[in-house]
Computed example of a mutant assay.
Amino acid sequence: MFAITAARISPEDPLSGLEAGERPDPEPREGWTVVDVRAAALNHHDLWSLRGTALSEKHLPMVLGTDAAGTDEDGNEVIVHGVVGDPAAGGGDETLDPRRSLFSEVYDGCLAEKIAVPRRNLVPKPPELSFEEAACLPTAWLTAYSMLFGKADLRPGSAVLVQGAGGGVSAALIRLASHVGHRVYATSRSGAKRERALALGAHAALPTGERLPERVDAVFDSVGKATWGHSLRSLKPGGAVITCGATSGDAPSAELNRVFFLQLRVIGSTMGTREELDALARMCARTGVRPEIDRVLPLDRAREGFRAMLDGDHFGKIVFTV
C-alpha cells in the first residue's frame, strides 16, 4: 500500500525525514480490523513526530497520521478515533488511560491507503458528512468539542477568547462556540487570519496580546508561552483557561498570585473520548456545522501539505484524499 512515513527524526529540519512510498499492508491483531482510508487530515502532531517530540526513534519507520475516515471490512462508512487505549484498562475514559497512545506513536497511522484499528475505535460516519469533512473531526475538532462542552462549564451567551486563530483546534472552537451562542473573541498575529476568524463567526478578532473590550468567562489556549499571560489577564474572576497544548513552549510564569487571588481555574484537556467523537459527528450532521478545510490534496502530494503547516500557511484543516 502507499503511505506517508516518518523515516528519520530531525528537530531542525523535520521534512527531511518524510518519505512517501510502498509499505506492507496492515495485518490486524485480535479485536482489530482494517479500514480502507478515503480521506485523512494533517495535524501538528505529525510535525512533532518528525521532530522527535511525539515519536521515538525505536518505532521508525512509522506511518504518520491520527485522523481518517473510510470504509471498514463490511463496507460501512466509518470515522477512526485516534486514541488507542490499553485493553486491560477495562474501558471508561480512554483519554485518562496512562498507557494510551495515538495512531502514529506506537501503531502505524492514517496517512495510508489502509490502516489497522481496534474495532472499538470505529465511529459511524453520518451520510451527511463527506469523507473529507469526517476526516477533520478525530483530533482538532474532537479536542475543541471536548474543551468547549466537556471542560469549560459555560452558560449560553458566555464571552470566550480563542488564542491563535488559524489552527485546526482554534478554527473549530470559533465555529462551535459561535454556533451555540457564545460571544467569541479571537486573536492572531495575522490580519488575514483575523478576517477568517470573523468569517467563522467570531464577535471580534484582535492582534495577539491586545487588550479585549471585556473580560471573558473562559479562554481556550493551545499556544502556551506566547499567550499565557494574556490569557490569564483576559479572564473574569472565577474564569477558566482551558489548555490543550503549548505550540510556542511552556508558559514562562504560572502567575499564581493572579490565579489564587481571582480564583481562576486552569484546566488541561487532551483529545476526547469515542463517545464524544460520535456525538460531535452527529451534531455536525444535524446542524450543518462543518470543519473549515484549508485545502484538499491527493496523498501523493502530502509534502505540500506538511510544508504549508510548517510555514503556518493555512487556516483550518489540510486534508489528503486516497
Rank of each mutant, 00 (worst) to 15 (best):
V80D: 05
L102C: 08
E94A: 15
V80W: 00
D97Y: 11
V80F: 00
S104R: 00
V84C: 04
E73Q: 13
G91S: 08
Y107K: 11
A68L: 04
E73W: 01
G82S: 15
E77M: 01
A88C: 03
R99H: 14
Y107R: 13
P98Q: 07
A88Y: 03
S104P: 02
G75A: 05
F103A: 07
Y107D: 08
P98L: 06
D86L: 10
D93H: 05
V83F: 09
D97C: 10
V83H: 07
D86T: 05
L96V: 05
R100H: 14
G85Y: 03
R99P: 04
L102Y: 04
D72A: 03
A69F: 01
G92F: 09
G92M: 08
L102A: 11
G65F: 01
T71F: 02
E73Y: 04
T95G: 15
N76T: 10
T95S: 13
F103S: 01
A88G: 09
V80G: 12
G85Q: 02
E73T: 15
V84A: 02
S104G: 09
A88N: 12
V106Q: 10
G85H: 03
G92N: 06
G85E: 04
G90R: 08
V106H: 08
D74F: 11
A89Q: 07
G90P: 07
D67F: 04
D86H: 03
N76V: 08
